[in-house]
Nucleic acid binder design. Structure first.
Lengths: 208, 208
DNA sequence: TCTTATTTGTTAATTATTTAACAATAAAAA
DNA sequence: TTTTTATTGTTAAATAATTAACAAATAAGA
């Protein structure tokens, strides 16, 4: 709840902590040590303790952290009060895979709409998410107060589609196309390219 | 070609440079400045020059870098001499999306096999990649000398499937499940969780 | 030819991130 | 009750990564 922004890396890890903690909690675990969290996520215990310190939560000495409380503490930091709505732009295999990811997971983030150049040739609905045409995109995004979009269109359409998203008031984009985007400074952009991940693996595998 | 391992981050950026350079090259560009590369990829010119210095390539003063030569230079660093074979384990939407990514792209990495618990209910082949049953996995991986695997099975099957991969001689895993894996130290593991990326975006969007 | 402008290559400085170290302390054991 | 042990919380040190600064050099222009 403190106002000073946390480091990028810490925010990322907090999300991972919560995932691991929810897992542990559903397995019946009530308390967890920093070194247990660290082992689960390939981190060091100090790093875990430091991150938890940064969000202002305290554990019980010699007992570790109360799992449920820590989940709460992390959540008050990384969640918004209300559900955040997410749009998926490009309802191909990748778009649908992401919709599937959210199916079932009760998250503060919910995918409320899909958009595609041609929803008619694909299923009009997938795991409860309706697919709309790109023409309807701007109005639906505005009407529903959607601020986050996941871009899973083919690379050649990335730039143009992103521009439309920005014009529609989107403030955060997760770009899965292999085309790097230019966005205004008030839009938070995160890019992920699978090829890069794979090439990195290939590099470190070959030299072993 | 120098033997001392490059930093993780540099390897990642080299892959991105190549992608951007190939793009530029196919657009007819012959020379490119460090600040142009930087702009394309949200980096600083110094960082680009520094990375290029690390791989031992030199540009032309006042002309920038020869695009084709730089692509070559990057490639000799991050590619293996022979094609690296990749297996995709879990041929659902995500698995197929990744297969699609490679389709067409002429890369040193090629997806040579898919594996799934039940190939019969899905298409036996997708974009040229044949889907095999999990029973055949170990023998096919060994027979074809596959060392890299992409894990796109449902979370609950992650651990067990990863174990089979390791037993089959896989040395690099790209894990897309939301379950963090434990692997021996001679296996290079890279994990990517979409939820974490999204929650990070949500965090930085809300506090703006 | 000489000067100016520009861009590379590289060292030094800075900043960010991680790790080490350890005091504090509370539970468990003696 | 006293001692031992284990674990947190936090400051200080170390490491890693980025950025600044600038010399070198060459092409272009005067």
């Amino acid at each position: 709840m403190d106002n000073n922004k946390l480091p990028d890396k810490t925010v990322e890890r907090l999300s991972q902590y919560r995932r691991a903690l929810l897992n542990a909690s559903s397995g019946g675990k009530q308390y967890i040590f920093s070194h247990e969290i660290a082992d689960l996520l390939h981190l060091t215990p100090v790093q875990v303790r430091r991150d938890i310190m940064l969000i202002g939560y305290s554990g019980k000495l010699r007992h570790g952290y109360n799992v449920k409380e820590l989940i709460e503490a992390v959540s008050t930091i990384i969640d918004t009060k209300n559900k955040q709505k997410v749009a998926i732009v490009g309802v191909g295999n990748l778009g649908r895979a992401i919709m599937g990811y959210f199916k079932g997971k009760k998250s503060q983030l919910s995918v409320v709409a899909g958009f595609d150049i041609n929803c008619d040739t694909i299923n009009k609905e997938y795991t409860g998410v309706v697919c709309y045409s790109l023409e309807e995109m701007e109005s639906i995004i505005r009407k529903n107060n959607i601020h986050i979009a996941i871009l899973t269109v083919p690379g050649h359409a990335a730039e143009q589609t992103a521009q439309k998203l920005i014009n529609s008031g989107i403030k955060g984009i997760l770009n899965f196309t292999s085309h790097s985007l230019q966005v205004p400074s008030d839009v938070y952009l995160e890019e992920y390219d699978m090829i890069t991940s794979l090439e990195k693996i290939a590099y470190f595998v070959k030299s072993e």
